[in-house]
């Protein structure tokens, strides 16, 4: 079963802390999203493996845009 992680708010990606194939635990930080001049960590909602990363650093994203697919 795959889990989709999307941007909770508009902003820009300032850091991607995982790569495809990484095993992550629930509440591990995956991505840092800068919004309102503030760095917001985005955490894994559950344990799993990173299957796809749909953004790269410095991308600006809309709210709801897909960032990562986990398995």
């Amino acid at each position: 079963m795959s889990v989709e992680i999307s941007a909770p708010m508009p902003g820009s990606i300032v850091g991607i802390l995982v790569k495809v194939g990484d095993e992550v635990k629930e509440n591990d930080e995956l991505i840092t999203l800068e919004a309102m001049k503030m760095e917001n960590p985005i955490f894994a909602p559950s344990d799993g493996m990173v299957k796809e990363i749909r953004v790269k650093e410095k991308d600006s994203v809309e709210a709801g845009q897909l960032l990562i697919v986990m398995e």
């Binding site: 909770p8 708010m9 919004a35 309102m36 503030m38 955490f43 909602p45």
Partner: peptide
Amino acid sequence: NKQNFLLM
């Protein structure tokens, strides 16, 4: 709650 984004 790490999944909670209240900023907006």
